[in-house]
Design a protein around this nucleic acid. Structure first.
Length: 447
RNA sequence: GAGGUUGUAGCUCAGUCGGUUAGAGCGUCGGUUUGUGGUUCCGAAGGUCGGGGGUUCGAGACCCCUCAUCCUCCCCA
């Protein structure tokens, strides 16, 4: 016999969990719809070429590849096979992979359908993604993302609206969050001001860790990554500036840096007259790993709960360019549904009635009563009541226990008396109150 | 990719220095004499101690390998 198991980093979702997850999906979806976004779904697998090279070196390593069907070794590169060069070999034995996020498949879709879409094209997408990461707290190998993106406009209106979407969705879930915003152009401006434009990526990964390792740690990391001391001094000074306005003089010689500041200013200005319920904060250390971001970038974290970011996103000026259609600027954000789930669970923020599935259960004493119950159930359902019949007549104790365990709020008892009077005896499981009525009235009272 | 943690009943875990027939709580099932559950009482079922190898008169415990798990780093949602 074999002990059943599921792959590392994956989970089953029981009835309760699916219901809670749907609550998150429904909440964000209704906000997306309110802002005019349309639904889209794409396949779980993409051609590997679509995925590789979009997420940076680290991202490529975390792609799940799908082994070719049939005799895959026939097409394998013999040299790579002999020399055990996995990277090279993979390219010849796997031509498909599981999607790593929803943004890149979206860009692929837009390019393939550009003739029929009207721009700006706004879509939302709620689907699982897969990453071959090492699982740990708040990190899974299969997890759901809820993405909203708009492509085909570089208007900063959308940056502002995405902030509002984050704000409203989390407010609706009663989850206090901090929305952090930065701009990749600002980060580039820092690199230019420090005279290390060629070490841009090294710099961003180092300063991204500021809140984790402190200024000392950042200094050390920059040093290890070969950034000269003079440049480190400039970076440190910038990290200490309180707001983005005061970066202006420092960026005097960085056209890109100034452009980034201008963009941030515009977003804040648009939002200035529409109050947010959550905190929006400029954070110069926010970097974001995905290499396709070019403008504003966002990240959301829960205020009262220890968890990595529960959402992130940003502006990508030319993601469709790699698919042969340049000049389509896009911006979007993602909600990490599984982490949001963990946070809501940890803070006990799921609504209470979420586990209620069926309104009433019919219990019966004997075979005639059971058959009568079956008829009553049909009538109740016709009246729009969700109802369940206990599968066999008999002892009430058993039937009541089942109803209690399932969290069914009402139980109707059916025996000779009820059949004679053509009524149901209904018990409110919470209060213990009991009343009798005919089927029509019962349906009315439960509605 | 690197480091560590933990694997004993369906679940959460005890199990002393290596010593007889491996325990508890919760859950499950049955009963408490047949029209009322979430409370009490009684009873029962349920274990290849993750798997394989080794040391020993003797291994759940010690050693090696392996698989799984959770956590940390890297990176990320």
């Amino acid at each position: 016999m074999q002990k059943p198991s599921i792959p590392e980093g994956t989970r089953d979702f029981g009835p309760e969990q699916v219901r809670k997850r749907s609550y998150i999906f429904d909440t964000v979806r209704s906000v997306f719809v309110k802002f005019g976004f349309q639904p889209l779904e794409t396949p779980a697998m993409e051609n590997l070429g679509t995925l590789t090279g979009k997420y940076g070196e680290e991202g490529d390593k975390l792609l799940f590849k799908i082994l070719n069907n049939g005799d895959f070794l026939v097409g394998a590169d013999p040299e790579a096979l002999a020399s055990k060069n996995s990277t090279k070999l993979t390219a010849t034995i796997a031509k498909r992979g599981l999607r790593y996020d929803l943004t890149v498949p979206f860009a692929r879709y837009v390019v393939m359908n550009r003739g029929t879409l009207s721009f700006p094209f706004k879509r939302y997408q709620i689907q699982p993604v897969w990453r071959a990461d090492r699982p740990q707290r708040g990190r899974y190998r299969e997890f759901f993302q809820c993405d909203v993106d708009v492509i085909g406009s570089d208007s900063l209106l959308y940056e502002a609206e995405l902030v509002q979407i984050y704000d409203e969705a989390f407010a609706n879930m009663k989850l206090p969050v901090v929305i952090k915003i930065n701009n990749r152009k600002v980060l580039f401006g820092i690199a230019e001001a420090a005279g290390i434009a060629d070490q841009f990526t090294n710099m961003t990964v180092a300063i991204d860790k500021l809140d984790k390792v402190g200024i000392e740690g950042v200094r050390k990391e920059l040093n290890e990554r070969g950034v000269p001391d003079t440049a480190i001094a400039v970076i440190e000074k910038i990290l200490k500036t309180p707001d983005f306005q005061s970066l202006k003089p420092i960026f005097a010689n960085s056209e890109t840096g100034l452009k980034g500041l201008e963009e941030l200013e515009r977003v804040f200005q648009l939002l200035s007259k529409s109050p947010l319920r959550n905190e929006l904060k400029f954070d110069v250390t926010l970097a974001r790993g995905l290499s396709y971001y070019t403008g504003c970038i966002f990240e959301v974290s829960a205020k009262d709960y220890q968890m990595g970011s529960i959402g992130g996103g940003g502006r990508y000026a030319d993601l469709t360019g790699v698919f042969g259609v340049p000049g389509l600027s896009g911006v979007g954000v993602s909600f990490g549904a599984d982490r949001i789930y963990d946070v809501l669970e940890g803070l006990n923020l799921f609504p209470e009635n979420i586990s209620e599935s069926v309104k009433i259960m019919l219990a019966s004493f004997d075979e005639p009563a059971f058959e009568y119950a079956f008829q009553c159930a049909t009538e109740l359902r016709a009246a729009g009541v969700s109802v369940e019949v206990y599968p066999e007549p008999g002892k009430l104790k058993k039937q009541f226990e089942y109803a209690a365990k399932r969290g069914i709020p009402f139980v109707a008892i059916i025996g000779e008396r009820e059949m004679e009077s053509k009524t149901l005896t209904v018990k409110d499981q919470k209060s213990g109150e009991q009343w009798s009525a005919n089927v029509g009235e019962v349906a009315k009272r439960l509605a």
